[in-house]
């Protein structure tokens, strides 16, 4: 029960409190780039979640079984980038073969994710936070869902912005960044909520 509770805390805190986009400011590029339409945003969010899960499932053993044993902890970043990029490429090939429909929906986003900092960030943070294997899987699931949540929220907001009359000086990227900062501020309000949820 205690482990379940701690896993739930990790999941919720990585979705809400330590949201990768809105609190840690990682993965801003797809957050701003692919959030124009809700459908695309959801596709990107799901792709990122899948890749994050897969990436932390692979990088955790690599860190503890290979790098730490050889005293090569400092090679973490390079090795992780290498592994994640290859992994995403492989995922794309597999998707193309086994699920063309899914590939059509998510395929365009996969190359974007290969060197996404949010994915790399999850893999590295799992190690720095000292998570075990299961914990790091749960945390990466949470991070992916958090990314999805941020994307969906922001896509909704952007479609509202598109319809509204924005002063000329703020049109385009300016108003988008301001809107992003407001969501980010709103998410700051969730800090501390998870820790007190299960007391």
């Amino acid at each position: 029960m205690e482990t379940f509770k701690s896993l739930l805390v990790i999941l919720l805190s990585s979705v809400l409190v330590n949201n990768y986009v809105l609190s840690r400011f990682l993965g801003i590029c797809p957050f701003l780039g692919v959030s124009k339409k809700l459908g695309q945003a959801v596709g990107m969010g799901i792709s990122v979640t899948a890749v994050m899960l897969l990436a932390s499932a692979i990088t955790w053993p690599i860190q503890y079984l290979i790098l730490d044993n050889l005293g090569l902890g400092y090679m973490q970043t390079i090795v992780f980038i290498l592994v994640i990029a290859a992994l995403v490429q492989m995922l794309e090939v597999m998707l193309k073969k086994f699920s063309p429909a899914l590939h059509k929906a998510l395929g365009v986003y996969l190359p974007l994710i290969t060197t996404n900092c949010a994915v790399l960030g999850v893999a590295i943070n799992n190690i720095t936070d000292g998570y075990g294997f299961l914990e790091s899987i749960v945390s990466s699931l949470g991070c992916g869902l958090g990314f999805l949540l941020a994307m969906v929220l922001f896509a909704g907001l952007r479609s509202r912005i598109d319809e509204s009359e924005v002063p000329k000086q703020f049109r385009g990227l300016a108003v988008t960044l301001i809107a992003a900062s407001f969501i980010s501020l709103a998410f700051m309000g969730l800090a501390g909520i998870v820790d007190n949820l299960f007391v």
Partner: peptide, 14 residues
């Protein structure tokens, strides 16, 4: 060696 090995392994796997 480790980086090359991992890179090679991934490349071959791909």
């Amino acid at each position: 060696g480790v980086v090359v090995a991992i890179g090679l392994f991934m490349g071959i796997l791909l």
